[in-house]
């Protein structure tokens, strides 16, 4: 069973927080602290889903999402933006850039895992690895 999730997040504490919650629920977490590494990792390890922060150094979340979309082998991999909706038009831009969905920051630890699972493709538990 593929239980790998890729989290692209530059803030160490937030990455740790999401990793902690998702590992508790039995997912295998791969972290990347910038867009470039994240894209390379995604192509290499084929995660179940990609959690993507928008405010990233150098290459921002929009550019990362657009780049990921250019690789057809990742078509079935949902991209879940984790964002603070800080800037005007963020939501529209995120979806336009290719994200499947978004989760608002700060995350609610009570519901976060359930929200992620809702975005995963149906029958993900059955997929062989």
């Amino acid at each position: 069973m593929n239980n790998r999730l890729l989290i692209i997040e530059d803030n160490e504490q937030n990455l740790y927080l999401m990793r902690f919650l998702l590992e508790k629920s039995g997912f295998a977490i791969i972290g990347a602290d910038n867009g470039k590494t994240g894209i390379a990792t995604a192509l290499q390890c084929r995660p179940l889903a990609i959690l993507l922060d928008i405010q990233l150094p150098e290459m921002d979340g929009y550019a990362v999402a657009a780049e990921l979309k250019r690789h057809s082998e990742l078509d079935a991999v949902p991209i879940i933006a984790v964002t603070s909706y800080a800037m005007v038009g963020d939501r529209e831009n995120i979806l336009a850039a290719g994200a499947t969905g978004y989760i608002e920051k700060p995350i609610n630890p009570d519901t976060f895992v359930a929200e992620i699972i809702a975005y995963l493709p149906e029958g993900w538990k059955d997929d062989g690895d």
Partner: peptide, 15 residues
Amino acid sequence: HELRTPLNSIIGFTG
């Protein structure tokens, strides 16, 4: 945004 990033940790870990 800058305030929310640490707040994400505080709220998250408290939860």
